[in-house]
Design a protein around this nucleic acid. Structure first.
Length: 576
RNA sequence: GCGUCCGUAGCUUAGUGGAUAGAGCGCUGGCCUCCGGAGCCAGAGGUCGGGGGUUCGAAUCCCUCCGGACGCGCCA
């Protein structure tokens, strides 16, 4: 669709005294398909050309009459409305997708560039709640999308394995913990200790002091403290990895905060050499008042470091050692100020690539309208959510498709897909109120709906194999040129094809906005167009030539949906 | 108090300068002697938070007020 726009734009650009790119960008899809397939509003040009829009539209329409890719051109209320020849889009789409379906989506705009994405990054010894789902899922989808657009992508799990919070867990364990209990159920038991610490600290403020002391011992290399710390990490990681496997998430590096312990001194020194550090109440900070931000604390008054220092060291590592040109951080929007500060400090340190650092923020996860507070033990375990979704999928399969050969595998794919899609389908900045009734509903704009559509397409293709001879199956793949003139699709076929032809535009918008929900919406639009086509037009019982064409369309849709789901880290079962 | 973000149907939302503001859930009513009914079609439901401004044109841009979320030096 993009190439058609450009082709048309080239014809009219000089008359409109605009660049072809601008003309192409101004072309839009009419709200009502009766009006046409593409439209150009001419109001913008009125001032510059000193003509009324209606007149300009007529002039443009005249120019476009000669365009071979158009079926008709009409003028209405200052709009030029164009109908495109079905065969033109058909042949383009099938030609572009013939080598690989991905070519319909990407032009590989970022070949030779490398991006590092920081995502998921849970805290050790804390449960993996639904709140972590957002970062994990958005990050994974983003990584897949950017790789597809030509980037070499590095996925980094910046584990929270350091910091004062760790002192709390260690202090709590030494006070109330038992080795046996932890061994029995590591993540939940360690979490209990963390919650109890916060409860008791409300009565006993000096506990906070003890926690800071424990963390100090950790930083100073105390043997027993380190032993406990490593043990906690080991146990927690095992738990996390189980969830990542279920979600189909993979990281190139697990680089926890502790990884940067020996890399922070260099940062402090550099800041000092560049006269960026000032002392304030015993702490060392970078003053950012000139940019209307509070100071960025680099070293606390007790001498220990803080997360800003670690994030600086991590950024330098990712750029200098991993050679990433772009650094993305998929982290909640509550940390917006923090990242603004860190990026500004990088800038002040003379790192011009700080402008390629992006905080991909997302909204808060709530549960039934209430804020989730890890400290108070108010947590919804992601494991539990996935388990419930899988069970729901399993019971639906039981009632709708009891003869399915691999019901457990499909239940897992569909249940997990429902949870992922539910999270990805809305704009990432919005807060999400997590409700089981929404997640466990598999009707309407959901992951299972897209998966179902894909399975349906697969089913038709399977059936075609058994009912149609091999020779006929292999005969026509696209429309023969001789048929070009008379080649007209039904309204349902045409709107499906047009929707698929917009893959590139949706994909690039999703990448440019770092927003997987754009892809999710595209999947829904294609699914809906396909289901309508499936309902309106018979496929297997149609006459030969038409049947071939419809099977081509089914095959195309199947691949488009499977690929779209893949970009969202959702599996596409062939039957469900 | 200051800063950032958000406010669209009962609920969840799309549309961020163009035609009559699109969907889904829920509700009501249709559609399988026919390729999968996790589907398709139709109906009811909207002061696009309020007001002002810019523009040929505003849900979209600017100002202001209201409501909400988050943040504002030693947590991450």
């Amino acid at each position: 669709m993009r190439t058609v726009k450009i082709e048309l734009a080239n014809k009219i650009a000089s008359t409109l005294q605009e660049t072809p790119e601008n003309c192409a960008m101004l072309m839009e899809y009419p709200p009502n398909p009766e009006l046409g397939d593409l439209a150009l509003p001419c109001f913008k040009f009125a001032k510059k050309l000193r003509k009324n829009p209606q007149q300009i539209a007529h002039d443009i329409a005249q120019l476009l009459k000669s365009a071979t890719c158009l079926e008709s051109v009409t003028v209405e209320n200052g709009y030029v409305n164009m109908k495109i020849r079905h065969s033109v889009i058909w042949n383009k789409v099938f030609e572009i997708s013939s080598t690989h379906i991905a070519n319909l989506f990407t032009r590989q705009r970022f070949l030779g560039k490398r991006v590092a994405i920081d995502y998921s990054s849970p805290n050790i010894a804390k449960p993996f709640g639904v709140g972590h789902l957002r970062s994990t899922i958005i990050g994974e989808a983003l990584l897949r999308m950017l790789k597809e657009d030509g980037f070499e992508g590095i996925g980094i799990n910046h584990l929270g394995d350091w910091g004062t919070q760790f002192g709390k867990v260690i202090a709590a364990y030494q006070k109330w913990g038992s080795e046996d209990k932890v061994k029995e159920n590591p993540i939940r038991e360690l979490f209990q200790l963390y919650v109890r610490f916060h409860q008791e600290a409300e009565q006993n403020p000096h506990l906070e002091e003890e926690a800071r002391y424990c963390f100090k011992k950790l930083e100073d290399g105390d043997e027993e403290t380190i032993r406990l710390w490593q043990w906690f990490i080991k146990e927690s990681l095992t738990g996390f990895e189980k969830t990542y496997r279920l979600l189909g998430v993979h990281f190139d590096h697990y680089l926890g905060e502790s990884f940067y312990n020996d890399k922070m001194e260099a940062v402090v020194e550099e800041l000092q050499d560049k006269h960026l550090l000032v002392e304030s109440d015993g702490a060392f900070v970078v003053d950012l008042s000139e940019w209307n931000m509070p100071p960025c604390i680099i070293r606390k008054s007790d001498g220990t470091t803080i997360y800003a220092t670690r994030d600086l060291a991590a950024a330098l590592y990712r750029h200098d050692k991993l050679h990433a040109d772009y650094l993305l951080y998929v982290v909640g929007s509550e940390q917006t100020l923090h990242f603004q500060q860190v990026f500004k400090v990088l800038d002040l340190m003379g790192r011009d690539w700080s402008s390629n650092c992006v905080h991909v923020a997302f909204g808060l996860m709530k549960f039934n309208g209430e804020k989730l507070s890890t400290r108070r033990g108010h947590v919804v375990y992601l494991e539990d959510v996935l388990e419930k979704a899988i069970q729901e999928a399993r019971s639906i399969i039981e009632s709708k498709n009891p003869n399915l050969s691999n019901p457990d595998e499909v239940a897992r794919q569909v249940g997990v897909g429902a949870v992922i899609f539910n999270d990805l389908k809305t704009y990432r900045i919005h807060d999400v109120d997590f409700r089981y009734e929404d997640v466990l509903n598999f009707d309407g704009e959901t992951g299972p709906y897209v998966q179902y559509t894909h399975a349906r397409a697969c089913s038709v293709l399977r059936k075609a194999l058994t009912t149609i001879s091999q020779e006929e199956m292999n005969s026509s793949v696209s429309v023969p040129d001789v048929a070009l003139q008379s080649f007209t699709l039904t309204p349902s076929e045409w709107s499906l094809l047009k929707q698929i032809a917009q893959a590139n535009e949706f994909f690039e918008r999703a990448v440019d906005q770092y927003d997987p929900s754009v892809i999710a919406r595209f999947a829904l639009l294609v699914s809906h167009a396909f289901n309508r086509f499936y309902h309106d037009d018979p496929i297997l019982t149609a006459p030969h030539s038409i049947r071939q064409r419809r099977l081509d369309l089914v095959r195309l849709t199947k691949h488009v949906l499977a690929h779209t789901l893949h970009l969202l880290a959702i599996e596409a079962p062939e039957a469900m």
